[in-house]
Amino acid sequence: MTNVRHRYGFTLVELLVVIAIIGVLIALLLPAVQQAREAARRIQCSNTLKQIGIAVHNYHDVHLALPPGHVIQANDPDWGGATADTDVESWGWGAILLPYIEQAALYEQSGLGRGTLLETVIDPVALTPVASYRCPSDTAPTIGVGRLFSDWAMSNYKASYGHRHRAVQIAPVAAAQTGCFLPIGKPGSYQGSLRLRDVTDGTSNTIAIGEVAWKRGELFHEAAVWAGATRGKGGNVCKDVYAGGRAAINHSNNVSNELCESFSSMHPGGAQFVFADGSVHFLTENIDYVTDGSSNESDVDSSYERLLSRNDNQVVGNY
């Protein structure tokens, strides 16, 4: 009797079918994995903002006032010069909150509490990354090289100056800035810090701090700087520490000032905000928003503007 040997294996067609099935499975699973990872990053970002909100309240408990948005130091030798707008650096709210986010050593190194000028500690302090000010979904560089102004360690969170268009630049006084953070420093122009009682619309109805992305697609939103601002004298400080109602969330028109002075994020569909009561909310980019882009705009006539304004005396409604 003749023994017949059988060879076992895949035919070429069978192999191609298996490869095709594996490819389909990967195509189906990959988006789910990416969504799960983004969900985890969004939760981490929310927790970070929550800690910032707690830090704001702890600061208020100690100082009986909200932290200033930025501090213009009167002893800066560049005051009064022809290039003062570009040479007067200002500490920002992020630096002021360092002791309340477990960064007391960095705060002590900065000398901020002793009146040390930001310009004298840029290398050791302003170039130091602070993880508590970064959103894990944002892939921005650690140092903002090539940004319009401050090439310092970056942040993804900016303080709200309110609903108005370019409020810090057009009129740096309390009446113009309807947000929770005011600049302090130069007598006669800057009014000083607010208290929670000044948030007359209710702390649960008012945005305090929100996200700003480094880059969305091909559009540079420029993110933020935690230490402060190079151009702390004038309205250009917005580019580093403030954002507001100049444009909608995740604004998509390629106008640099509008992009960097509005809130945005790498989270799909919107951005996260910490409100004045310390709660964190995700606001959709499709939230009701109306603006005419005027520098003198004062009307508060949309849900987003009502959330940005601390004292419009209107009912926010659903958002």
Results as ranks from 00 to 15, higher is better:
residue 4 V to F: 04
residue 12 L to K: 10
residue 17 V to Q: 09
residue 20 A to M: 08
residue 25 L to H: 04
residue 31 P to K: 11
residue 33 V to P: 02
residue 33 V to I: 13
residue 35 Q to N: 12
residue 36 A to C: 00
residue 39 A to K: 15
residue 43 I to R: 14
residue 47 N to S: 14
residue 53 G to V: 02
residue 62 V to T: 13
residue 62 V to P: 00
residue 63 H to C: 02
residue 67 P to A: 14
residue 71 V to T: 13
residue 72 I to D: 06
residue 75 N to S: 03
residue 78 D to F: 14
residue 85 D to I: 11
residue 88 V to N: 13
residue 89 E to S: 09
residue 89 E to D: 06
residue 91 W to Y: 09
residue 95 A to F: 06
residue 97 L to N: 13
residue 99 P to N: 08
residue 101 I to K: 06
residue 106 L to F: 03
residue 109 Q to N: 03
residue 111 G to M: 07
residue 113 G to D: 10
residue 114 R to T: 09
residue 114 R to F: 06
residue 116 T to Q: 15
residue 117 L to N: 07
residue 119 E to V: 07
residue 121 V to C: 04
residue 124 P to Y: 09
residue 128 T to S: 07
residue 132 S to F: 07
residue 132 S to Q: 15
residue 132 S to Y: 01
residue 133 Y to P: 03
residue 135 C to E: 05
residue 136 P to G: 09
residue 137 S to V: 03
residue 138 D to R: 10
residue 139 T to E: 05
residue 142 T to C: 00
residue 143 I to E: 03
residue 161 Y to S: 12
residue 162 G to M: 15
residue 164 R to M: 09
residue 166 R to I: 03
residue 168 V to Y: 07
residue 168 V to H: 07
residue 173 V to K: 12
residue 173 V to L: 05
residue 175 A to K: 11
residue 175 A to S: 14
residue 176 A to E: 11
residue 177 Q to L: 15
residue 178 T to M: 01
residue 186 K to S: 11
residue 187 P to Q: 11
residue 191 Q to W: 12
residue 191 Q to P: 09
residue 198 D to L: 08
residue 201 D to Q: 08
residue 204 S to I: 03
residue 204 S to V: 08
residue 204 S to T: 15
residue 204 S to Y: 08
residue 206 T to F: 08
residue 207 I to D: 10
residue 208 A to V: 05
residue 210 G to I: 09
residue 219 L to I: 14
residue 219 L to N: 06
residue 223 A to G: 02
residue 225 V to Y: 01
residue 226 W to Q: 03
residue 228 G to S: 15
residue 231 R to Y: 00
residue 232 G to F: 06
residue 232 G to R: 08
residue 234 G to K: 06
residue 236 N to S: 12
residue 239 K to V: 05
residue 242 Y to H: 11
residue 242 Y to D: 09
residue 249 I to E: 00
residue 250 N to I: 01
residue 251 H to K: 01
residue 251 H to R: 04
residue 251 H to V: 01
residue 255 V to M: 12
residue 262 S to T: 07
residue 262 S to N: 06
residue 271 A to E: 00
residue 274 V to F: 10
residue 275 F to C: 11
residue 277 D to N: 15
residue 278 G to M: 13
residue 278 G to W: 12
residue 279 S to A: 09
residue 281 H to G: 02
residue 287 I to Q: 00
residue 289 Y to T: 01
residue 290 V to E: 12
residue 295 S to F: 02
residue 296 N to R: 06
residue 297 E to D: 04
residue 302 S to P: 04
residue 304 Y to E: 00
residue 304 Y to F: 15
residue 306 R to V: 07
residue 307 L to P: 01
residue 307 L to E: 00
residue 307 L to K: 04
residue 313 N to F: 00
residue 313 N to D: 05
residue 314 Q to N: 11
